[in-house]
Simulated assay, not measured.
Amino acid sequence: MVMDRRNVLALLAMAGAAGSLGRPAGAAPGPMACNVVLVHGLFADGSCWSDVIARLQAAGLNATAVQNPLTTLDESVASVQRVLARQDGPTVLVGHSFAGMIISEAGIDPKVSALVYVAARAPDAGEDYAALAKTFPTPPASAGIVFDGAYGRLGEAAFLRDFAGDLPEARAKVLYAVQEPFEKSLLAGRTTHAAWRTKPSFYAVSTEDRTIDPDLERFMAKRMGAKTIEVKASHLSLISQPDTIAALILEAAGRS
C-alpha cells in the first residue's frame, strides 16, 4: 500500500529511534581514510564514478571503482571484498543505488572506516527491501525495466527520462549504451549484516529521483542516523553533481 504523507512522516520519526539501536547516537567519525572504494548499482558500470574519482584523486585519495558483476548478491559482495583486501589502511566504502545493499553487507570489514550511500538502498539485516519499497510510491523507472530471459536492463526512454533525467541527452545516451544488464536472481538477495549500525554513515538524497522514491531515501537515511545531505538531482547525482558527492565522501574520509 502506498503511504500518504502523514504516514511517511510517522515512519521517519520511528526510524530515528530505530537507527540508534546497535550503536551510540551521533557516533563519532572514523579515522582519517586514505582509500575510497566505490560500487555501482543497476543499469550502470564502474565508469559512472569517473567524475567523482578525478576529484578524490586530486584531494590525494586512492580511489577504486568496483566492477560489480550484478549476478547474485553474494557474488557482488565478493567483488567488493576482493577490492577491499587490496587496500592499505582505513577505507571509505561508497555505494550508489542497489550497491547500498552491497556496502551494507561488505562494510563490516575492519578496514572500512565509514559508509557513504548515494541515492542508495540501505536495508537492515535480513530485511525484505522490496516489501519496504512498496510502502512508498512506485518510482517511474520501475515501469521501464526490460527483461531478456534472466537478464534485466532499463529501456532507453526510461533511462533518459527517469534514471539520468538531469544529464545532457548525448551523455545520457552514452551511459545507456554501456549499462551492465543484471541477473534477475540478484533482486532476491537479502543482506545478513547492516554495517551502518556500527560504522559512521553518510547519505546523499536525490530530491528529483525517479528511480528510488526520495521519501524512501529520507526514511533509510533517518533510520541509520546518517549525516544526510539533499541534492537537487536525478538518480545520477554522482554524474550530474560530482563536486557535491565528492565533498560528502571527503567528509566521510575526514578530509573536509
Rank of each mutant, 00 (worst) to 15 (best):
A78N: 09
K173Q: 06
P139G: 05
F182N: 02
G149S: 02
E75S: 09
M101C: 12
T71I: 13
A170P: 00
E183S: 07
S142A: 15
I108V: 15
I239V: 15
H193S: 05
S113K: 08
D243G: 00
A177M: 06
L216S: 02
K134G: 04
T211V: 14
L38E: 01
A194V: 08
S237R: 00
A27G: 11
V116H: 04
D51L: 15
G46E: 01
G126M: 01
V178M: 06
T244V: 14
G149I: 05
H193A: 04
R161F: 12
F147V: 07
P242C: 04
R223G: 00
R6G: 01
S206C: 15
P123S: 02
V66I: 10
Y151L: 09
S206I: 08
A150H: 11
N7Y: 09
R223M: 02
P90C: 06
A157C: 07
T228I: 14
A221V: 10
P110A: 10
M220Q: 13
F136P: 08
G46Y: 03
L93R: 02
M3N: 09
G89N: 04
K199P: 15
V37E: 02
A17Q: 08
H40W: 12
D209C: 06
P242H: 03
L248K: 01
P168C: 02
F159H: 06
A247F: 04
D45L: 11
I239L: 13
S206M: 05
A54M: 06
R171M: 14
N68K: 12
V205D: 00
F202W: 12
H40L: 08
R86D: 07
A247Y: 05
S240G: 05
A59H: 13
L238V: 11
A85H: 14
G152Q: 07
Y151K: 13
A65L: 03
P24T: 10
D88W: 10
V77Y: 07
V8K: 12
